Simulated scan of single mutants.
Amino acid sequence: MVYDRFVPEVIWRRIRPDAIYVWFNDEVRRRLKWYYMVMNDEAPAKFLLARAVDAGENPSKLDDENLWQLKRRLHAELEKLRKEALEGSLTLEVYEREFRDKPEYSLLHLDVEAARRLANPCRLCERRCMIDRSRRIGACRIDNKTYVHSWFHHLGEEPPLVPSGTIFYGGCNFTCVYCQNYDISQVMPRAGEVVDAKRLAQMQRELRIYGARNINHVGGEPTPNIPTIVESLLYLDVNVPHIWNSNMYMTLEAMEILIDFVDLWLPDFKYGDDKCALRLSAVPRYFEIVTRNIRIAVEHGDMIIRHLVLPNHIECCSKPIMQWISENLPVDRILVNIMDQYRPENLVAKYPRRWRDIARRVHLEEVEEVKAYADKLGILYEPVS
């Protein structure tokens, strides 16, 4: 195995032992096969494959209908290439030799153009605020610029991801009363470094060449920044898997863009009850939208689902989520991280009487109850916890 080939000694000395030994687990290797191959430069990342699919014409000259029709047709070609890579016939070495001459306009160029159009008026997330974010702040609390608050080698993520090249974007389309990153998502989302696509590509390149196993797009929420993120992949010149670390509240149109470059999905599956989602995050139609997007995502890359156990929300949220996963997803191809890190933050810390049900840390017994229920349903979670 070559899972450590990119990790410099200065980082390797600090890496958690489980981030090393997780790759000796055959189930993890099997369930995260695509991510593992790209991480180790055995296969080209999806964004590189998308750059090799010839669009044949300038996407800016296409009307919306023809743009999306062409994009969907070319996505099928991308999937054929990914299948070849999964089977081992299209290695990174073969890709670099056979696709040395890139097309003038590729599938990725179509994605860039589609993302720009979705962003004005904004229909990137299911709030569909329809705001021209070049003139006004959207429902995500940011304008049309991309704000990066920090980017670094994260050593605290799930073992298969560490060290993770994490990029924290400002802004979020949720208003979670317990948000642990509320400073960048709700309070000062536009206080980060303003980056364009080339600068963002430079950040990703440096993270990779100095030891990152992946590029981890997170926040806040990365969805409002899809146009800049997709465009940055036109300039990125290193092979690296891309992770979408998200609340998964994006539109179907945004999903059609994401499936062209996301290698591993890291959905944050919060609520099993829409009433809880509306009260705690001010999000309507939560369960319908998030489950729809997770169904799509699992067919277009590897997946680790995150579920943060909330105190007093076992019956209404945690168990229904586990039940839905077991009945609707291929549980033999995904991993689930049942998380016990909840602590009362943000508005819950300020006004605990208003949110009495979650105004304390989660009890160990609650977490163990959720894990026991997941075990009963055949859901694998331990290798990533």
Rank of each mutant, 00 (worst) to 15 (best):
N40T: 15
N328S: 09
M130G: 11
S89T: 15
G138L: 12
L347I: 10
Q341H: 06
P159L: 12
R136D: 14
P284D: 05
H313V: 07
K61C: 05
E113Q: 09
H75Y: 15
E369C: 05
L207E: 10
N239L: 01
R73N: 10
S106D: 06
L118V: 09
G156Q: 10
E315C: 07
E231K: 14
I296V: 14
P383H: 05
V240R: 06
G220Q: 03
N144W: 09
N173H: 10
E345K: 08
P383R: 03
A359P: 08
R82W: 00
E65C: 01
C129P: 09
D111S: 15
L70W: 02
I259G: 08
R97A: 14
I338P: 04
A115V: 06
M188F: 12
G171I: 03
V10N: 07
P383W: 05
L92A: 00
W355P: 02
T251I: 05
S318L: 03
L347W: 12
A119I: 02
P344G: 12
F168R: 02
W324G: 08
H313K: 13
A374M: 13
S185V: 15
V290K: 00
E345W: 09
P224D: 11
L70K: 15
E96N: 15
P330H: 14
S318G: 02
A374V: 09
I305G: 04
H300Q: 01
P224L: 12
G272E: 14
L258Y: 02
D237Y: 08
R31F: 00
M1W: 08
A277P: 09
L32F: 06
E365N: 11
A55G: 04
M250G: 05
R141N: 11
V218P: 03
R16L: 07
R31E: 00
P222H: 07
R292P: 00
